[in-house]
């Protein structure tokens, strides 16, 4: 699915997003980079239909995204936390979100099992989330996001709470899922190495209120190390800008 973000702004008490525009073709892996608290998560929440933008619009394949419960189900989302219902088993958690797709109970069950197998959780279908590890919970959350067969998969620093080793394993896993499903993915991270190794489009956001500072096509034409150096410098500049003038370095 083609994703277009057009001049999207959002303000709460303060402006958070300032006319953010970007575009991604079907099957792209977009990485959103930027300083902490700059509005990356807010942009993802707007794409996920959780809240509407103050101005601007989001289009999926040219159709504007609608907000509220009546909207169509296009987007799977993996949050920073797993957000599984602790009182439902892994299989029930995945099956729950399939109701909105109008599947009957047997189909929901079969689909849930299929996607749990796809993320390597066969045998754990009947486990409650509190009985499995954090990495496994996050896999189940990915299975839930994929099970609705979304046009767009949003991931908000999904591995932030995992240890370094699990994080690497899950990165490889997401790369495999992307390669096998061809989904359009928007992935928020502040790990530059992760973004450069995985993303096809890198979006560097500015300090709050966030704008798109730079949009880089990561097609392998640029030297990886030079690119990482460049992004590191950019993110440091934005981090300092976000802290505001007059704040001395510690």
């Amino acid at each position: 699915m083609r994703l277009e973000v057009r001049e999207v702004s959002k303000r709460y008490a303060i402006p958070v997003l300032d006319a953010v525009s970007l575009e991604a073709k079907k099957g792209e892996f977009v990485c959103l980079l930027g300083p902490n608290g700059c509005g990356k998560t807010t942009l993802l929440r707007i794409l996920g239909g959780i809240e509407p933008p103050t101005a601007g619009e989001v289009r999926f394949d040219g159709r504007p995204l609608s907000y509220g419960r009546a909207g169509e189900l296009h987007v799977g989302m993996v949050f920073q936390e797993d957000r599984l219902l602790p009182w439902k088993t892994l299989a029930e958690n995945v099956a729950l979100v399939l109701k909105a797709r109008g599947l009957d109970q047997a189909e929901r069950r079969a689909t849930a099992e299929r996607y749990l197998r796809f993320v390597g959780l066969t045998g754990f279908e009947e486990y409650y989330p509190n009985r499995v590890s954090g990495g496994m919970r996050q896999r189940a959350a990915i299975a839930r996001a994929l099970a609705i067969e979304p046009d767009l998969l949003l991931m908000d620093e999904p591995f932030g709470s995992l240890d370094a080793q699990n994080r690497r394993i899950m990165q490889a896993e997401v790369k495999r899922i992307w390669a096998e499903t061809g989904k359009t993915i928007v992935f928020v991270t502040h790990a530059i190495e992760e973004a450069v190794s995985i993303g096809t489009t890198l979006v560097m956001m500015s300090a709050r209120p966030a704008r798109v500072r730079e949009l880089i096509r990561n097609d392998g034409a640029r030297d990886r190390h030079a690119l990482m150096d460049h992004l590191n410098r950019a993110i440091m500049e934005e981090v300092l800008r976000q802290r505001g003038p007059g704040v001395a370095d510690p």
């Binding site: 959780i50 987007v75 609705i148």
Partner: peptide, 11 residues
Amino acid sequence: KLLEMGQVYRL
């Protein structure tokens, strides 16, 4: 956060 999850998945 769970309610938001429900919103994303159009429960």
